[in-house]
C-alpha cells in the first residue's frame, strides 16, 4: 500500500533522507524509530507530498504521490503529533468538514456520531467546541476522520507523545483495530514500548538512513531497546 523507492531528500546539500526503500502492506503497522532529525517526519511529509523528493519516489496504492497528489490523498489519513482542529467549531462540525473534503460530503449526523463512538469519544462531546478538548480527544477525532474517510493507509507522526498511559493505550487499541481491518500504518515514534505493542514491524533510522528492519515478533521489549541503543551508539 505504501512504498518508498530510493526516496531521498536533501536541503541545501544536507541529506535529510537517504535512499529509503520500504514497503508497508495492508494490515502492517510499520514503526519508524530514531533520534530527532533522523528523517522520520521527512518520510511522512514526502508521502503527503508536503515536500517534494530530491530523487526516488513514494507510492501510495501504486501511484506516485508527486504525479497524482490528489488521488493518492484519497487513500491517506494523517495524524500529527497533535491533531489541530478549528477551535471555534464543534468536534462534529470538524469531523463533517474534513470528511467532506475527503470526499464523503453526504454523511448523516447519525453516521458521524457513529464514528465518534467508534473511536471511544463521548457522544455529548460531539457538540462541544474543540477548544475545550484534551489532546487525547483530538487524536481520537483524527482517527475518526480516518475512519470516515475510509483511508487505506495511515501516516502517524508521534501520535502518542504527551498522552497519558490510559489514552495512549486506547490509541494503540484503535490502531490495532484499524490494521486488523486491512489498513497500512506508517508511524513515526520514540515510544519503543508502543512500537513493540502495536507495531508489526519496526525500522530504525539514523542520519536519514534506514539502518535496520525487524519484525516485532523477533524479540521481546528489552531486546528491542538493546538493538535500538546499539544502532544509536557511535
Amino acid at each position: 500500500m505504501l512504498e518508498a523507492h530510493a526516496l531521498t531528500k536533501r536541503y541545501n546539500g544536507v541529506t535529510a533522507l537517504n535512499a529509503l526503500t520500504l514497503t508497508v502492506a495492508p494490515g502492517d503497522v510499520f514503526c519508524l524509530l530514531g533520534a530527532n532529525g533522523a528523517g522520520k517526519t521527512t518520510t511522512i511529509n514526502l508521502f503527503l507530498n508536503f515536500i517534494s523528493p530530491t530523487s526516488g519516489s513514494a507510492l501510495v496504492n501504486g501511484l506516485d504521490v508527486t504525479k497524482e497528489p490528489l488521488e493518492t490523498k484519497r487513500h491517506l489519513a494523517y495524524i500529527p503529533e497533535t491533531v489541530m482542529l478549528y477551535k471555534n467549531l464543534t468536534g462534529l462540525e470538524n469531523l463533517e468538514y474534513f470528511a467532506a473534503l475527503a470526499g464523503k460530503p453526504d454523511l448523516t449526523r447519525e453516521q458521524l456520531i457513529g464514528y465518534f463512538r467508534e473511536v471511544g469519544l463521548a457522544v455529548e462531546a460531539a457538540d462541544r467546541r474543540v477548544g475545550t478538548y484534551s489532546k487525547g480527544m483530538r487524536q481520537k477525532v483524527g482517527i475518526a476522520i480516518a475512519l470516515a474517510k475510509g483511508a487505506k493507509a495511515l501516516l502517524l507522526d508521534e501520535p502518542t507523545s504527551g498522552l497519558d498511559p490510559k489514552a495512549s493505550n486506547e490509541f494503540s487499541d484503535l490502531l490495532r483495530r484499524l490494521s486488523g481491518g486491512g489498513v497500512a500504518v506508517l508511524m513515526a515514534t520514540h515510544d519503543l514500548f508502543r512500537a513493540k505493542e502495536s507495531g508489526t514491524r519496526v525500522g530504525i533510522m539514523k542520519h536519514g538512513t534506514l539502518v535496520a528492519q525487524h519484525t516485532t515478533d523477533e524479540f521481546g521489549h528489552a531486546d528491542l531497546e538493546r538493538v535500538y541503543l546499539e544502532h544509536m551508539r557511535d
Binding site: L48, P69, L70, K149
Partner: peptide, 14 residues
Amino acid sequence: EQGTLALTLSQPLS
C-alpha cells in the same frame, strides 16, 4: 500557525 493546514491538505485537496 495553528496547525490545521497540514490536516486539511492531507485530504485530496490542492
